[in-house]
Design a protein around this nucleic acid. Structure first.
Length: 108
DNA sequence: CGTGTGACGCGGG
DNA sequence: CCCCGCGCCACAC
């Protein structure tokens, strides 16, 4: 028998929001936390992403930091995330930053 | 219990 | 634009 994982309301909202990010668009950890009604929860969003991406099949690569840069370090995911985003048409400028226009906001 | 640790964010220099 | 410091907060030990 498989146990059903209990997730907090915040976690379930975060999962719902991330799942809704369209192809070719991105959201920041902080923005996701804000829409999930926990403005201070950016770091929690990061942790949720780290632990639930596989189980919930989340488009984890569509989440970057507020500056529009990938937070993963080279050698541990950075290249993979960048390739996935580039494959969806997301553009990185010379300083490895994604322009504001690629950011997406839920319609509520 | 206290202490350290980030897939963060923001303001300053 | 880069680099720091500080605030934040769930979690591992």
């Amino acid at each position: 028998m498989k146990e059903i994982e209990e997730v907090s309301p915040f976690t379930s909202k975060v999962i719902e929001i991330i799942s809704a990010i369209p192809r070719g668009r991105v959201m920041s950890y902080g923005l996701i936390a804000e829409f999930a009604e926990n403005r201070r929860g950016a770091r929690q969003v990061a942790r949720i992403l780290h632990t639930c991406s596989a189980a919930y099949d989340l488009p984890w690569h569509r989440v970057v930091n507020q500056k529009g840069r990938i937070s993963l370090k080279p050698g541990s995911g950075y290249e993979r995330q960048k390739n996935l985003l580039a494959g969806e048409g997301v553009v990185f400028d010379r300083s490895d930053t994604i322009d504001e226009r690629f950011f997406w906001r839920p319609l509520w």
